[in-house]
Amino acid sequence: MNVANFFFLIIPILIASFSSSHASIFTVTNNCPHPIWPGTLSGAGTPPLPTTGFRLESGQSIRIPSTPGWSGRIWARTGCNFDESGIGKCQTGDCGGRLECDGNGAAPPASLFEITVGIGDDKDFYDVSIVDGYNLPLVVVPRGVYGPCNATGCSYDLNLGCPKELQVVGGENGGVQGGVIACKSACEAFGLDQYCCSGQFSNPNTCHPSIYSSIFKHACPKAYSYAYDDGTSTFTCKAYDYTIVFCPDPNGSKGTTNETISTPPGMEDPADGEFIHLVSSSTILQVLPFSLVIINVFFIFINLFF
């Protein structure tokens, strides 16, 4: 193979590889006045993210890379206490009593960010769900590859208005002593088919919003409030970054999730904030811009053949 043929063969391969490997970064930000312990859970058939659980101090952010086609959930735990080996327990959102969730999901009630990342040019599908209950305010702002996308989430503190029969009362470390630290779903609280959309209520024709899910929906109109709440709660985008903010400031300027915004309400752009870096298997990988990849390949090519 001559030099010219090699060059024109390798470039298309690199371009195809870059296109197929494009995936979103999840920028997780803790705007709460206390530590949180985010957890991640991958869907069936998709690999785990570089971390499945970690501590995030107030004011800190972290970037987590995904892979094309990744599907799963991200949430935050509160009131956690772990020993040096990572064994312990959280007051809300616990995932099997470990710092790293390792395939365990969030124990309800917990506010969830759910997403399926598109492959290639396919769009991402994402939502914020309080179907399994609620523990923290959560807003997600995608930064679109081809333009702006819809922010979604629930910036209102549902714990403040949680009906007494749904309340979870907790203690210290992320919850006010004796205060409400989470709000159960009606399904978890009562276990009835009509609330759980199960049995004879397991289809959209028979399962309708309950008085409890309607309270959630009124406060958080863009979040999933019950199992068949698809129409106003699922969004699509092709994004290079999803900024996931726990405890956004609901009083920030233009601080509603009904608007398409580029920066979460009541917080600085993550580029100006404090970022922490994971170590070992959780190290954040930074993807080089495509132009730099081509330039590097070009110089390698020159060094090899000239």
Rank of each mutant, 00 (worst) to 15 (best):
N2F: 01
N5Y: 10
L9S: 14
I15T: 13
A16W: 10
S24P: 06
F26P: 10
F26N: 04
P35H: 01
S42F: 00
S42I: 02
G43C: 04
F54M: 15
E57T: 03
P65M: 11
P68K: 04
C80M: 08
S85F: 13
K89L: 03
Q91R: 12
T92E: 04
G93W: 04
D94E: 08
L99R: 12
G103P: 13
N104Q: 13
A106I: 05
A106L: 04
P108M: 07
P109W: 02
I115N: 04
I115K: 02
G118K: 06
I119R: 14
I119E: 14
D124W: 13
Y126K: 06
D127V: 07
V128M: 07
G133L: 05
Y134N: 04
P137A: 07
V140A: 02
P142R: 05
V145A: 11
G147Y: 12
D157Q: 10
K164W: 12
Q167D: 08
Q167G: 14
V168T: 15
V176I: 12
Q177E: 15
I181D: 11
I181R: 09
A182W: 01
C187K: 05
A189R: 09
A189I: 06
D193T: 02
D193R: 05
C197M: 08
Q200M: 12
F201Y: 15
F201E: 04
S202R: 10
S213N: 06
S214L: 11
Y224A: 07
S225N: 03
Y226D: 05
F235T: 01
D241H: 00
Y242G: 08
I244W: 03
P248G: 06
P248Q: 10
N251R: 12
T260K: 14
P265C: 15
P270Q: 04
F275L: 15
H277S: 15
S281E: 15
Q286K: 13
F290H: 07
F299E: 02
I300K: 01
N303V: 05
